[in-house]
Design a protein around this nucleic acid. Structure first.
Lengths: 298, 298
DNA sequence: CGGGGGTGGTGCGAATTTTAACCGGCGATG
DNA sequence: CATCGCCGGTTAAAATTCGCACCACCCCCG
């Protein structure tokens, strides 16, 4: 029996005029397309294309079957839109849990856009530092920073995101003052009960003995923006804030990898799929920022 | 992008009602079908089947997309028949479907000769009691006994053959014994769940009350050759078998007319034309035998 | 109540497909 | 005429898919 998927490859080649261009559109390598076209021609026992040095051109036989291939495509499209339309009509709640800093400083605009694009999806954002139990349906999607992949629960489906790095930041004003000799020793700003991490001590800026303690992440950010001292922040916060700059000589440190976690059952639903694809796309565009590669050099 | 071949698997499961049956038709293992259905459902984000212990049953979503899947299949079939119809080389595959009895007791020697005459034609004989769908290209030529001409599908091209008659036969030994008075009442041999046709009761030979039931045509023939009783057979079997004789006083009955059926597209093909012309010629030489006019008078 | 035949589901090694990295050729272009 | 980009084609290695051997379950029937 013929492999129907070969017809999809045939259509792409017929339209693009070359195997390589078709491969790019199909998001495979050109050798795959080459093999599938050969397979189709072998099965049908006829040449569909003239193999010219400049590309593939349809033969008469190819022209004749093009019409039917397009019919298949039309049916396939109607099939997909039909099932999409079905599920779109189903309103429902979509619960997302993630670290508070990710929500407020990175993804909230994207959540807002997703909500505008899909007004029928009732979104619920649950910022939480703890790992929420997805199996209990406390949330449909979790966005987590994972350092050791083996700690991921096996019953969850994970979509790997970019790697997340952190750096040491202080306010630009404080940095200028220090360079001008107006500030000799800079305080560390730490979240209470967390000590200062060793790798952060490597900067050129000498640290004051007494740290400044805050209770949560937001207060910590407010403090560093006010020029109270320097602190460790994820790069996507520090690099994105025009008031902040990296401490000279400090190095980046990998906090872990971002993962989009979904539960097996709810993963099949259209809302969850839409959301994960949407967020996954955004995360990959943010990848340089998240990994600290978009750091300002000024 | 969706794998179009998954739709083919979906169709098979939807029709067969179970993954295993679909797998057999697709000539793969059921685990493959299982995976492909799961993949399709995952991609579409909807359940296509209810997974019951007794098998897979279409959900509403599945019912809705079934229509489009069938459209894809129809286009795929038209594509294949079109490219096949273009093919004017004698070399290639030729699928023929016909009733099992016609194949084994009448035409097999002719098929063999055709294969010898045209060794480049890859012949495939599909004996089947059911009407095979020529439009699906499950076969290129069908040889069928048709009683009512109006039941012929309009999209097929028919070449009329001889009329086919059946008669009542018993073994010569049994007939001698009966004539000698050594066998008083003769059993009817019937294929299970088929009663004895009325017109066959007209013979001089009295029938025993209890019929002998067989499961298929071949067993029926073996039974009558063994002298187990009398039975209704096409004349081309009964008259051609030296062990059998017509039951005295019985009359012939028209079963229908033989037709050589071809599909419009494939009919243009050289090997289909060669084959139909060849078989048509043979059938007309066999016409007296098939019509029961070659019955022995001894 | 045991057995046979049907169902879906799963884990793993094997087979197949896909990828990635090369060629050599062709044409436009600087 | 060198070079750059795009083309098809080939190959070995990586990744994925498939087939096989099972399992549990269900139902029917002796």
């Amino acid at each position: 029996m013929m492999d129907w998927d070969d017809v999809r490859h045939f259509l792409a080649v017929a339209r693009e005029g070359s195997v390589r261009a078709a491969a790019e559109r199909l998001e495979v390598t050109h050798s795959t397309v080459l093999r599938r076209i050969a397979q189709l021609e072998e099965h049908l026992g006829a040449q569909m294309f003239e193999k010219l040095p400049s590309g593939y051109r349809l033969t008469n036989a190819g022209e004749e079957i093009l019409e039917f291939a397009e019919q298949m495509e039309a049916s396939s499209n109607r099939l997909e839109t039909r099932v999409f339309g079905r599920d779109q009509s189903v309103r429902g709640r979509l619960k997302v849990t993630l670290a508070p800093t990710l929500a407020t400083h990175l993804l909230m605009p994207d959540f807002a856009e997703f909500a505008r694009l899909h007004p029928e999806v009732e979104m619920e954002i649950l910022p939480s530092g703890e790992l929420v139990n997805l199996t209990n349906r406390e949330a449909d999607v979790a966005i987590r920073v994972v350092y050791d992949r083996s700690t991921l629960p096996l019953n969850l489906h994970g979509l790997k995101g970019p790697e997340l790095f952190g750096g040491v930041y202080m306010s630009r004003d404080l940095l200028s003052a220090w360079r001008a000799g107006k500030a000799d020793r800079i305080r560390w700003i730490v979240i209470s009960q967390n000590g200062v991490l060793d790798w952060a001590r490597e900067g050129e800026v000498p640290a004051a003995e007494v740290p400044f303690k805050t209770t949560d992440g937001e207060a910590q950010i407010a403090a560093v923006r006010q020029g109270l001292g320097m602190t460790v922040l994820p790069c996507f916060i520090g690099d994105a804030d025009p008031l902040l700059a990296r401490v000279p000589g400090s190095v980046l440190h990998k906090h872990g990898t971002l993962w989009l976690l979904t539960h097996g059952e709810t993963r099949k639903t259209k809302r969850v799929r839409l959301f994960t694809e949407f967020v996954s796309g955004r995360l990959s565009t943010y990848a340089p920022l998240i990994a600290g590669l978009a750091g300002r050099s000024d």
